[in-house]
Design a binder for these strands. Sequence first.
DNA 1: ATCCCGAGGG
DNA 2: CCCTCTGGAT
Length: 216
Amino acid sequence: MIEDLQERKAQARRVVRQLKKDYAGAECALNYETPFQLLIATILSAQCTDVRVNIVTKELFAKYPDADSMSRAPVKTLENLVKTTGFFRNKAKNIHAASRALADEFDGEVPKDLATLVALPGVGRKTANVVLGTAYGIPSGIVVDTHVGRLTKRLGLTDKGDAVQIERELMEVVPKKEWIDFSHRLIHHGRAVCAARKPKCEGCHFLKFCPQIGVV
DNA sequence: ATCCCGAGGG
DNA sequence: CCCTCTGGAT
């Protein structure tokens, strides 16, 4: 990692600038129509590609578009609908319980604060930050998923392994108004270019300020 | 630290 | 076969 804070901020500015150039229109890749549906899709996205989540949610949301209907669905039915996303027993149980909590305690609406969201079953900081930022435009934190963790480490913005610690370090150097787009754009870059296994460093626009030259 | 878990790539 | 994919709960 880049040790000096000012230097790390400068690096963050370079990254943000390049992300804007290359991924200006980058949005959330999950399909949804309501904050509720984004919440469910994000829970399902754990250790699973967004493409597969979108395949599953098409049918899932057609049958159960809101918290009330999903809370009434048999868990077994939900298991079958989300099976191909992996962790299907946990995910089915969680989206059912979360839907019930939303229907019972929040009139089916998705809360707009981190603490309440994180209290929902199957919802951690990452999912809560996605919903707050993407559905409500509230920059409550920075979404740190597998892509954001990997890329910010390669770019020298952090050396931590824990998602919460990575988020804290990023919040120090990335301006708040950039938080929401920052993650989405990094994720796009992570998929298209800076992949985990075989990164396409040739032709990468971030190469000129990437500490990993000749390393990865 | 470990478990949950399926699909696709290499 | 092994690794990775928009993690969370215990």
